[in-house]
Simulated assay, not measured.
Amino acid sequence: MTTRIVIGDDHPIVQAALQSALSSVLPELEIIPCQSLDEILAAVPARVDDIDLILLDLGMPGVQGFAALFILLAQFPTIPVAIISARQDAATIRRAIAYGASGYIPKSLSLPVMAEAITRILVGEIWMPPNIGGRGSVQGEDVELAARAASLSAQQLRILAMIVDGKLNKQIAGELGIAEQTVKGHVSTILRKLGVGSRTQAAVLAERLAFGSARTIAGPE
Rank of each mutant, 00 (worst) to 15 (best):
Q156C: 11
L160T: 15
R94G: 00
D50I: 01
L111P: 01
I51T: 09
R148V: 10
M128W: 06
V48E: 15
S102Q: 14
G100K: 04
M114S: 10
G100I: 08
R94A: 00
K107Y: 05
V44N: 07
G140L: 13
G65R: 09
I132H: 06
A43W: 11
I105F: 01
V44Q: 11
A91V: 08
Q64R: 15
L73T: 02
R87D: 06
A96P: 01
P61S: 10
R94W: 00
A74W: 12
A96C: 12
P130N: 12
P61D: 06
I163R: 11
R158E: 11
A147W: 07
A154E: 14
G59V: 03
Y104D: 08
L152R: 10
A150V: 01
E125I: 01
K167Y: 13
R148F: 04
L41I: 11
L73W: 03
R95Y: 02
I83N: 04
I159A: 08
L109T: 04
D142Y: 13
T119I: 07
P106A: 03
Q88D: 15
V113Q: 14
D142E: 12
Q64M: 15
A43K: 02
L69G: 10
I132N: 05
A147P: 01
A149S: 07
G134Y: 06
V164N: 08
A117T: 04
I83K: 00
A42G: 01
I84N: 07
R148K: 15
A43C: 06
M114G: 03
I126Q: 08
M128F: 13
T78G: 00
P45C: 09
L160M: 12
P106Q: 12
S102F: 05
D38A: 10
D165K: 15
R135S: 05
I105T: 06
K167E: 10
K167F: 15
A146T: 10
M60H: 10
E141Y: 11
A154N: 14
L73S: 05
I93N: 01
A117G: 06
P130L: 14
Q88K: 15
I97P: 00
L37E: 07
F76L: 09
A101W: 07
A86S: 04
G166N: 09
A146F: 07
Q156T: 13
D142K: 14
Q139G: 13
E116S: 04
K167A: 11
N131T: 04
D142R: 14
Q139D: 12
I159P: 06
I51A: 10
T119K: 04
V164P: 05
G100P: 06
L72G: 08
V81S: 11
G62H: 04
T78P: 03
